[in-house]
């Protein structure tokens, strides 16, 4: 029985099917590599908050310290969102009748909290201690980005486990003098790189970040 396809067509078809198979596998790998990661799923998350609070104005333009509102990042496990009372320290007089602040005033009168949306959400089985990092010279910027330039805060880093471990294995680029932690515009002094400053800090404060499982999963 003669074959249905000529030898040339047969070769052509085999090549096409083979190529299609290879490309399909490559595409699947590519899609998983590019999309199945917090770098895609989390970075850039910018929810609309109940009050249009601008970190750019408060932390950038006015130069308020991060600690004015997030009072206990330097001595507490978690970074607290400020009480409404903190907003009212100033906004009882400044922009006191602004409609943008209606939610804040309502919260102050009723005692019900403003329902801020949490942006940086670690899994519940990961234990992150803010105080330890802040006290040791890891700047806010390392995990939260240039918040003092953000009108609306967004998720700037992936906060994935490998991202945590990158820094725990080599912390020097992210270490600075602990007094400069909340200075988001800090630059290493002339003639030194951030890593060189970080190395000095690491040696001075005996920083030895744990890489064991129970450091974060306990």
């Amino acid at each position: 029985m003669p074959s249905l396809l000529s030898e040339k067509t047969d070769r052509e078809l085999r090549l096409q099917v083979g190529l299609a198979g290879v490309l399909f596998v490559a595409l699947a790998i590519g899609v998983i590599w590019y999309y199945f990661t917090p770098k895609y799923a989390r970075v850039g998350y910018r929810p609309e908050q109940p009050v249009p609070f601008s970190h750019e104005i408060h932390a950038g333009q006015l130069g308020l310290s991060c600690l004015y509102c997030h009072t206990h990042v330097d001595d507490s496990v978690f970074a607290n969102v400020p009480a409404t009372q903190t907003c009212m320290n100033c906004h009882a007089k400044i922009q006191a009748n602004s409609p943008l602040l209606a939610e804040v005033r309502a919260s102050y009168e009723s005692g019900r909290p403003v329902r801020w949306k949490k942006i940086h959400q670690l899994p519940d089985y990961a234990y992150f201690n803010h105080a330890v990092h802040v006290q040791r010279g890891v700047s806010c910027i390392s995990c939260h980005g240039k918040v003092n330039q953000m009108k609306v805060v967004f998720h700037a880093e992936s906060l994935s486990m490998s991202w945590c471990l990158d820094c725990h294995r080599n912390p020097t680029p992210n270490l600075r003098p602990p007094s400069e932690v909340t200075n988001l515009d800090w630059q290493p002094p002339e003639g030194k790189t951030a890593a060189q400053v970080g190395l000095e800090i690491q040696e001075r404060l005996l920083i030895n970040p744990p890489e064991t499982c129970q450091a974060c999963h306990r």
Partner: peptide, 30 residues
């Protein structure tokens, strides 16, 4: 699906929840 780092209000996509959300109260939680 767009590109990485796109700014928007879309909640982070979760495929496997594992034990990410546990029945316990977090500080300042609701």
């Amino acid at each position: 699906l767009g590109f990485r780092g796109h700014l928007g209000p879309g909640r982070p996509l979760m495929v496997f929840f594992d034990m990410d959300f546990q029945p316990k109260y977090q500080p300042q939680g609701q």
